[in-house]
Design a protein around this nucleic acid. Structure first.
Lengths: 215, 215
DNA sequence: TAAAATCTGTTGTTACAACAACAAAAAGGA
DNA sequence: TCCTTTTTGTTGTTGTAACAACAGATTTTA
């Protein structure tokens, strides 16, 4: 993953990025599939950016129900919310969906006023704002997808968005069945059942992670 | 509502705020209880700040189910996500819960790079980042509160947060019953029923909007 | 202060989603 | 290749939440 291609570093040249990285004490870490990257309840002032692999943000209640808030593909950022609200313990857990390498950065310097107003820092703050807005937007979407009472309604809401984003009625989803169920906050087996029905009803077709939304 | 007391203008002096307002073409508008302020599907590059009254963010699906994402008390900001993602149509509707006056500001200037890097603009961008992070955090919380399968679980999750925020087991909630149900994504009557049961069970006590969480 | 409108609480019925338990298929390792 | 593990799909049962319909309480306003 090239950093200059990410939302966070968009518009910054490689040289500048390097100097920013050292300024922010960037550190690389690796995680195996399933490992926890940031734990619920912990406090962090670092943001992370996924260099390779994939992570996800989730939370679970006292009964062990697991909810996925969003996936974090390569190039995406996490922890920015908590970095921007110093001292706020995390409500969520970030974990590696596959073997993943992460670049952590301490963004305090960029956020506190004491910084010398160098144009790259300012650019970075603006980018961070964009990233934060996108995250917020994603969460709104997730809330929308889980607002329907019925499983079919939730699936359709999610699939509609996928189709829109892919620009095609045929698309891949980044989740397996259990993860999709956790994202939509429903029971996996019941959801599988509903998917079959939808296929029978001619609403969708699917094969593994590839779905076709029939109009 | 004094602007210098808001998160968005924190740390800026009244004089500076005035000059920023004129720079951002700030305009005041008034809305009657129930009126829609921003409609789902529309495009805006303005952010709004509630000067007096109260608003809320909601969305509704094709069946007419209404979901409340968050309330916007006096002094709070809305629309910042869409202002930061130019061209993105709104997924949600903002409406006035009571008679409300709103100050709209066009923040494009602050966001685009062409701005002269005056320190007040930079401060404003940083504040906007904080606001955006808070909004994201609020949405995470809402997702958590609706992740339980049971109504009681959802209520307890929400009440726990309220108690924590108030710093007391006794607290006021900003929603009436219908709104609370829409926030927690459950049926109002069933929720009322559950509230009674919880009171019978000695878990909570309540009177109108005042709740007591018994440990 | 009476009437209207809104909000809250209650009950019974019904539908649908959770759950458990298992079978089949696919992926991963030895 | 076979064996193990993980993932996906199926079925039946059960519980719980949605829904409808209404009564009582509270607020609004004429």
């Amino acid at each position: 993953m090239k950093l200059s291609n990410t939302l966070l570093f968009r518009g910054l040249q490689d040289k500048k990025i390097d100097s920013i990285l050292s300024c922010l004490n960037a550190e690389k870490h690796s995680y195996k599939k399933g490992e926890i990257i940031l734990t619920e309840g912990s406090i962090t002032e670092n943001i992370g950016i996924v260099l390779s692999g994939k992570a996800m943000i989730s939370c679970s209640d006292i009964w062990g129900n697991n909810s996925i808030l969003s996936d974090i593909p390569s190039g995406s950022v996490f922890g920015e919310v908590y970095a921007c609200i110093p001292g706020q313990p995390m409500l969520v857990t970030v974990s590696a969906v596959e073997n993943t390498s992460i670049l952590f950065m301490n963004v305090c310097r960029v956020l506190t006023t004491c910084t010398n107003a160098c144009p790259f820092h300012i650019k970075l703050v603006r980018n961070l704002l964009t990233v934060c807005a996108h995250k917020s937007f994603q969460l709104s979407q997730r809330i929308q997808h889980t607002s329907s009472k019925s499983i079919r309604g939730r699936l359709m809401s999610y699939f509609s968005e996928c189709a829109k984003q892919f620009g095609s009625n045929s698309f891949l989803i980044p989740y397996n069945r259990q993860q999709l169920a956790d994202y939509l906050n429903v029971d996996r087996s019941t959801m599988c059942n509903e998917l079959s029905k939808m296929q029978k009803d001619g609403v969708i077709e699917y094969n593994k992670n590839k779905f076709l939304l029939k109009t």
